[in-house]
Simulated scan of single mutants.
Amino acid sequence: MRVLLTGGSGFIAAHVLDYLLEHGHSVVTTVRSQEKADKIKEAHPKYGKDKLDFALVEDIAQEGAFDKAVVSDPPFEAVIHTASPFHFNVTDVKKQLLDPAIIGTTGVLKSIKKRAPTVKRVVVTSSFASIVNPKKASWPEHTYSEADWNPVTAEEAENDPATGYRASKTFAEKSAWDFVQNEKPNFTVSTMCPPLVLGPIVHYLNSLDALNTSNQRIRDCMLGKWKDEIPATGTFIWVDVRDLALSHVLAMEQEDAANKRFFITEGHFSNRRIADVIAKNFPEYKDKVPSEKTPGGTLPEEGIFKVDNSQAQKLLGVKWRSFEDSIVDTVKSLKAVGA
């Protein structure tokens, strides 16, 4: 297939790109700068312009940002949309989180409908943030699945950056489903809802300073920042970035994934387990990582919500990587950039 991948230098997208190329697809990926395009190209020397090309989209929140990018010769058959802002150093929630996420998602769909009639499949990266009910905390009696939606309101969204981030994911995903319902485009949409995404970084795009938010906790543990106390885990479920990336590609390839929402998670974890895996597998960090006596980082005593990821397993057939393998591979990748 000829595929447009948005946000190609992102943590998740870099792995999506690897799987797309591995599966024999021809890819154009959007980047914010020529420098990023050059780095990605250098890292994939065996693929010519026919298999890997680039489109510059500097600001996904601009009206019509993707109008040029969706036009291609040969034309696109599918789009995987991963581009989205994710950081908490926010001063204006609406302008920095809500607008870019919502306009970025509806913008790409509008551009496809208007200018890329050959596109039949669109896969959008959403988040567990659009599933979770933050007011219920650990909610041990509940099982989360694709049927759940975060009940956040537009008013609550502007309370603080963390709520704003979760709201941006919720409203962006809802806007995608509304688009399908109201605009009746000639493409289907599938959405991916992962929780905390861990796993190896793509070294040519990342330094320890520019690490994706999820992996920062592994870096902090390696650097000795958890020595006296392990921080609260926060999100108690996770997935490996490679399993998530493969899920995007499989959802694009498989017809029965059309117009479905996928909860992409391996299951539960805790920060304490991160520390234990690093201690067990990397003796060189013995003096930096917490010991068995270090407080914090455990699962809540009252228990924790359950997860139902059966739709992803059944329709996409993903075999989840183990937590230990994921942490070990991540630590190795961080060591390669100087941890």
Rank of each mutant, 00 (worst) to 15 (best):
N309I: 07
T6N: 08
D240N: 15
L5A: 01
T143P: 08
D178V: 02
V239G: 13
W320C: 12
I230V: 15
L250V: 15
M222P: 10
G104D: 05
V132Q: 04
K293N: 15
I103D: 03
P85W: 01
N271K: 03
A336M: 11
A55Q: 12
E63M: 06
A251K: 00
S33F: 00
G107P: 01
N150D: 08
A147V: 14
K288H: 08
V123I: 13
Y165D: 11
T265R: 01
G164F: 03
F269K: 00
D50W: 12
G234S: 13
A83Y: 02
M192K: 09
A83N: 03
N309A: 15
I103C: 01
L244V: 15
S168F: 01
V189C: 06
T30Y: 07
E77D: 12
A78T: 05
T153Q: 11
D220P: 00
H44I: 01
F88H: 11
G296I: 07
H142E: 14
E146N: 06
N186V: 08
E146V: 13
Q313S: 07
Y204C: 13
V16T: 14
N215V: 14
A147H: 11
D325Y: 03
D73V: 06
G48I: 10
D308E: 03
I304Y: 02
V289N: 00
G8T: 02
T106S: 12
R32A: 01
F88N: 04
K314G: 01
K319S: 15
L244R: 00
G10W: 00
E253F: 07
R2D: 08
V57L: 12
N89R: 14
S130F: 12
P100S: 04
A83K: 04
E302Q: 14
H25I: 10
L299Y: 03
E301S: 08
T233R: 11
H44F: 15
T6D: 08
Y19H: 14
D18T: 09
P290K: 02
N150Y: 02
W139F: 14
H142V: 09
L198V: 10
E253W: 08
A172R: 01
D240G: 12
K225S: 05
F88K: 10
E42L: 13
S214M: 05
N182H: 14
D92P: 10
P117S: 04
M222V: 11
V27N: 10
T233Q: 09
I12N: 00
N259S: 11
P194L: 10
V331T: 12
V79E: 03
I230F: 05
T29C: 08
I304K: 00
D276Y: 01
P195Q: 07
L244G: 02
Q34F: 13
E173Q: 10
I218K: 00
A78V: 02
K46T: 11
F88D: 07
Q311F: 02
M222I: 12
K286M: 03
A37C: 06
G164T: 04
V239D: 10
K113E: 04
S322F: 07
W238E: 09
P74C: 09
A101Y: 01
E284I: 08
G64P: 00
P134G: 08
F236P: 02
K68H: 09
Q216H: 01
Q313K: 15
E77T: 09
S127A: 15
F88A: 02
K280A: 14
K94S: 07
